[in-house]
Amino acid sequence: MTVANMFKEPGANPYRPWPARITSIIDLTEHEKLFELRIIDEKVREGFQFDSGQFVELSIFGVGEAPVSISSAPSKQGFIELCVRNAGDVTGALHAKKCGDVVGLRGPLGRGFPFAEMKGHDVLLVAGGLGIAPLKSLINHIHDDRHDFGTVTILYGARNPSEILFRYQFDMWKHRDDFNLILTVDEADESWSDEVGRVTALFDKIDIDPDNTYGAICGPPVMYRYVIDEMRKKDMDVDKIYMSFERRMKCGIGKCGHCGVGHQYACIDGPVFNYWEAMNLQEAI
């Protein structure tokens, strides 16, 4: 049985986190670290199947819980990676942890990107800032299943070069011909040889086949409208543009009400919605 279903078993307590050990910590930027976590219970660890775009509730007793999207690919099992910005109580407490420390996890939660549906198509991924965190999972999943996809384009923008996440991977990928990767920053410095400007400006540099392309967007809330406009200008279908929303997913299981967006809850109905759904969601974009 998958872990997602174990939470729903009669007698299970979906509020009770599983202990998970931190097995690696990589400093990505000044504010972001990449944590590798392994659930301690072997049965649970092996049953932990998820989709890109799903999230976990990270639980540190005494501090609280915070929703974090999974950055590693579903094709890699036995561990998950979380890219976490130090932005609040829980994420701050996580940043203070050391390798070997134990934290809690609940999940995988929510609805992710429709990987199976995307197969056989081109994919255009657009990330802004920390929005790369969930898309990284999808990018790596596509990488591990590359022959099932057509053209894969990745547009990723950050405020400045020091805020580009996973740069160690992306610097290598820039030279690959199976991924069309374009990086941009708002403010460049002397180390920067890639694009300068908003991520939306990169749309002039790409060619896409609108009938055959799925979009995936994640970034700060202000970004969505502009990126969607560009995708629509390229004639992409409204129901093939997918995006992940950040909301206050506190319980993660559709009960506490904090992540309401329009008539839906981001935690169980999302956090990934397609544009058609988002258009019908009040307060969404």
């Binding site: 007793f61 609280g64 819980e65 506190k250 009960k255 506490c256 009400g257 904090h258």
Partner: peptide, 16 residues
């Protein structure tokens, strides 16, 4: 039915 969740530590800060 909306709720908030809060952790409280015991005075010795070891359990909560």
């Amino acid at each position: 039915y909306c709720f908030d969740v809060r952790d409280d530590l015991a005075p010795d800060q070891k359990t909560g």
